[in-house]
Structure formats: C-alpha cells, structure tokens
C-alpha cells in the first residue's frame, strides 16, 4: 500500500484513491497516419520494465481526478518524486 503525495491536493493520500496508468511520458505521435506499423506498434505496446527508477503516470481517481507523474523505485517501492503533467523529472535512472 503506497502513500502517494498528490501534487494538486498537496498532501499524501492512500494508494486506494489512485489508479496507476502505466509508464509516463508516452507521447502520442503527432501524425499517427505517417507512422509505420512498427512505429505505431512501439508506441502502443512497448514499455520499459526497469529494476529501479521508473516514471509512471497516476491519476488521483477518488480525489481531484488529476493525472500526474510518479518516479518510483520498482525494487524498494520508494517514491522519489511526484511532478505534474508537462513537467520533467529531476530524478532519473543513471
């Protein structure tokens, strides 16, 4: 059970208020029609599965309903930082 700081509500909330939405920073191609099947497949299906630092998209589903990013260590489950959509992480894997 993670304890997650919501950057919009500005406080910690229980994990059950949130939904995990997978890897963060998956950008939809600006011109999907110009993508090859392989490019589209990679956008659609290919995700990282790192041991250690990982950037994830979460939504405060039972609270403010805002999406935001979480940098989490997948091994220790430590949350290193949270940041709003559109922002860049300050902590990244080496």
């Amino acid at each position: 059970m993670l304890h997650i700081y919501c950057p919009h509500c500005c406080e910690y909330r229980e994990e059950e208020e949130f939904h995990a939405k997978g890897q963060a920073h998956i950008v939809r191609p600006l011109d999907p029609d110009a993508c090859t099947d392989q490019e589209w497949g990679e956008f659609m299906y290919f995700r990282k599965n790192p041991r250690g630092i990982h950037h994830e998209l979460w939504v405060h589903a039972a609270g403010c309903r805002k999406f935001f990013n979480v940098t989490r260590n997948t091994q220790t489950y430590e949350i290193k930082e949270v940041y709003k959509v559109g922002e860049k992480p300050t902590i990244v894997a080496e």
Partner: peptide
C-alpha cells in the same frame, strides 16, 4: 470519463 480526462490532461 477517465479516458476523456486522460487525453485532455496529458495530450
């Protein structure tokens, strides 16, 4: 609703 918000907020 979450789907609409996802696209509005992130894309």
């Amino acid at each position: 609703l979450e789907w609409l918000e996802l696209y509005h907020q992130t894309e």
